[in-house]
Design a protein around this nucleic acid. Structure first.
Length: 809
DNA sequence: ATAGGGTTAG
């Protein structure tokens, strides 16, 4: 019986009907005009503009066209199908317009036209001496809410009061709704509080108001309050509160709401199922999400959209895309949100081909002017490594929003185009668009990649001045950036002063310690994290912890954390986790264990895993397993020259020169190249880039000359060149001289141009080679300088002839 | 004949 509560609320009880003399047509809900003529029944059943045009001649022929009821119905239908012009063509010629016709027309304006035009029509009503009714105000207020026009909304609120609707339930509910939509939730609540009588609809309005304004807990509490007030939540209450549940990832509350919905017989409401679907995905419960979707007896386009994006956000992008295709197959008309979901999936997959397919589709759908869609398109091309295409879309896009700027800045940042990202950041501000937390995160991430301390301090200062550093995500990006700039202490200081820490904050700090070789600090921090009730470690946390163990040689600990990750935390290891484990075992010299581990993996081992294996074989000169790993790599990713280089390095470390030559020939035949070594160093507000063996730098001569004297000094101090490292796979003979590796040029430049005692920060795009590592240790000794090198995988702090990695990297 | 509250999105 509870399921009928809403029905009882809206219609009089049945026994009343049978006692009265209500005419038959009212009892079965057929309106008067329909009763009078069969053609009107068609009008009642009409569901599209096309049908309406077919029926229109019949109405005219019937002679009823001039009746008020028909005119009003026609205006109503034309408006419903979106044509205010055709409604107007019915409305204007009517000589004796009844009030209802005006009200209907005003509704049409409010739903299909601008606020300005609607207000003009309202003024006309005043002139024509039509007395406004409460609904006129609610349409207008609704429109103000949609346009987020708070000022006009207040004006209309005033007009409403002037017309005597100050304490009208419906009018006040509309006001509450308006203030809530305009993000003035306090005003909305004040109005709600002032209402002498509150019904289900007004409670629902205020619940959805708090939910939409991000006050999830408050929204949930209001649902309890309303029940104390004697209102039983209906399915709209649930739909309104479910986004709040999703916001706080309250899976348990969500499930109890689901139970309540089933008990109350709301299961068949599509919108409710869709809201449940969304909630389950936002709570990360993919399985339940799939189940809800499967069980839905009818699906709207919103259900499909929720499913597609929900899957994409939960790492199921292949399934997201196939769901998108299935939707097209079932002839469901996609919307802009569908396209955004599909693009989201393509972004995650990094699949340019399918991304282009969606792009063509959205062009066909004429969605090219939809800013949100274009923002997603920019993100997709950026994620597919085509920042150039993204940039050309960005340039040509009319009506850019802050989201558009953020998407492009992030796109540049993710593609290593730091200067472009910074330039766009400046252009954005010069055009009066305020950077938000997303913008800062993108720019900070880009700078973190560069590892340039001066720029780091600049953006940090800017974030502080704009109060952006209070945002968790911005602060986390700062922690990450300082860690990547080698300033691990500053990173920790920011971490410690944060009011709120997200999982990603902990992850960034743990990873920072890990890459600095501070394994103990990383594990201590992981312990601290357990004491924090509000955060739970996720898969990334464990990846950082395991790789921290790997960098510090904590094999036992690494195995332990891998175990508890699965058993105590219920997390499924990804390819990256397996790669980190192989690295952990392999680096420690347990190559057979690593090889065994690969074969016992429950998923098919990928490039990450074999890459780690080959790297370990190179360090420990295990040619037999290294060749096996390399074979797999060539099979999995035949176009990557880096593996050939790694293999050649392995042979050279084992002094197998003929094999080295063989690999070089194979590489040349395939036209593959090793990524050129490149090191960055900051000097006087500029970033100087050095390539291996390069002579393009203005100070080049001075640098090479200095490297020669430096070579003599370090040899005198005991440095012995490592001949094994010399046989690299570079084509140029000069590049074979390790003394011209990019980091040495950068170090020499740094030493020549900074005052004695200054720490030198270098950023390298590849891993440091053994000989350079050895040489840098001696350089730090003879020059008395601290040299910090960030390579592809970790930090090396060289000081007094030693490195923080303890020669373990 | 007009009728206040509701789901998806960087």
């Amino acid at each position: 019986m509870s399921s009928n509560l809403l029905a009882l609320h809206k219609t009089p009880p049945l026994h009343n009907i049978s006692k009265t003399t209500t005419p038959l047509y009212q009892r079965i809900f057929i309106p008067t005009h329909v009763y009078r003529h069969p053609s009107a029944i068609l009008l009642e059943l009409c569901t599209s503009m096309k049908e309406l045009h077919q029926i229109l001649p019949l109405i005219i022929k019937s002679g009823f066209y001039n009746e008020h009821l028909f005119q009003t119905k026609l205006v109503s239908l034309f408006c419903k199908f979106g044509s205010i012009n055709e409604a107007s063509r019915v409305f204007e010629p009517v000589e004796q317009k009844i009030d209802v016709l005006y009200h209907t027309m005003l509704k049409g304006y409010a739903k299909n036209s601008t606020l300005c035009d609607s207000l003009k029509f309202y003024n006309r009503m005043q002139n024509d001496e039509v007395k406004p009714v409460v609904y006129d105000f609610s349409y207008l207020l609704h429109l103000c809410g949609e346009n987020l026009d708070y000022r006009k909304g207040r004006e209309i609120h005033g007009m409403m009061i002037a017309n005597g609707f100050e304490s009208n339930l419906i009018a006040m509910t509309a006001v509450v709704n308006l203030y809530a939509k305009c993000r003035k939730i306090d005003d909305a609540y004040k109005m709600f509080d002032r209402m002498p009588h509150k019904d289900l609809v007004s409670w629902n309005t205020v619940v959805s108001g708090f939910a939409q304004n991000g006050y999830a807990r408050k929204a949930l509490n209001l649902v309890l309050d309303m029940q104390e007030d004697g209102q039983k939540p209906d399915w709209i209450t649930l739909v309104s509160v479910l986004p709040a549940v999703a916001d706080i990832k309250g899976l348990r509350i969500g499930m109890s709401i689901h139970g309540y919905a089933i008990r109350s017989g709301f299961e068949s409401m599509v919108n409710l199922s869709t809201a449940l679907l969304d909630m389950y995905f936002k709570c990360g419960s993919v399985e339940t999400g799939r189940l809800v979707f499967q069980r839905m007896s009818s699906k709207t386009v919103v259900s499909w959209n929720t499913m597609i994006d929900g899957l994409a956000q939960n790492g199921q992008s292949e399934e997201a895309f196939s769901t998108f295709l299935k939707m097209l197959d079932e002839k469901v008309e996609p919307t802009n949100v569908t396209i955004m979901g599909a693009l989201h999936a393509c972004s995650n997959l990094g699949d340019l081909e399918r991304g282009r397919f969606v792009h063509r589709l959205l062009d066909q759908m004429k969605l090219g002017s939809n800013v949100s869609v274009m923002n997603s398109l920019i993100s997709m091309y950026s994620k597919c490594k085509r920042a150039d295409i993204a940039a050309s879309i960005f340039e040509n896009l009319k009506g850019k929003t802050d989201v558009t700027w953020n998407a492009m800045i992030l796109g540049y940042a993710q593609n290593g185009c730091v200067n472009e990202a910074l330039n766009l950041f400046c252009t954005m501000q010069s055009q009066g668009i305020k950077p938000d937390s997303f913008t800062f995160v993108s720019v900070i991430t880009a700078l973190a990649d560069l590892s340039v301390t001066r720029q780091a301090k600049w953006i940090h200062g800017l974030a502080m001045r704009t109060n952006m550093d209070k945002n968790v995500f911005v602060a986390t990006a700062l922690v990450d950036m300082y860690a990547k700039c080698g300033a691990i202490k500053t990173a920790r200081e920011i971490f410690d002063t944060m009011d709120e820490r997200h999982v990603i904050t902990w992850n960034a700090m743990i990873d920072g310690y890990g890459t600095h070789g501070l394994g103990k600090a990383a594990l201590d921090l992981f312990d601290d994290m357990q004491n924090e009730a509000s955060v739970k470690p996720n898969d990334i946390t464990f990846l950082s912890v395991i790789s921290a163990c790997s960098h510090s040689g904590f094999v036992e600990e690494g195995l332990y954390y891998f175990k508890i990750m699965k058993e105590d935390y219920g997390l499924k290891p990804s390819m990256d986790h397996y790669g980190a484990m192989v690295d952990l075992l392999g680096r420690a010299g347990k190559l057979d264990d690593a090889w065994k581990f690969i074969h016992e993996m429950p998923i098919k081992p990928g490039i990450t895993v074999f890459g780690a294996m080959l790297g370990a074989c190179k360090i420990h000169k295990n040619v037999k397993l290294g060749e096996k790993a390399a074979d797999k790599l060539f099979e999995l990713d035949p176009d990557e020259g880096g593996y050939y280089a790694l293999l050649a390095n392995m042979y050279s470390s084992a002094s197998m020169w003929d094999k080295v030559a063989e690999v070089r020939t194979a590489m040349e035949k395939k036209g593959l190249h090793k990524t050129p070594g490149c090191s960055l160093v900051e000097w006087r507000n500029e970033v100087h880039t050095f390539y291996s063996g390069g002579t393009n730098h203005p100070q080049s001569k001075r640098i090479y000359a200095y490297l020669e004297t430096l070579g003599d000094e370090i040899r005198a101090a005991g440095y012995v060149p490592d001949n094994d490292s010399i046989h690299d796979v570079e084509e140029d003979v000069k590049e074979q001289l390790v003394s011209s590796h990019s980091e040495r040029l950068a170090i020499a430049f740094g030493l020549l141009n900074t005052r004695p005692g200054t720490t030198i920060h270098i950023r390298k795009n590849l891993r440091v080679c053994g000989d350079c590592h050895e040489a840098t240790k001696y350089i730090s000794l003879v020059t008395g300088r601290e040299i910090i090198v960030r390579d592809l995988q970790r930090f090396h702090h060289f000081k007094n002839g030693r490195c923080s990695c303890g020669d373990y990297w």
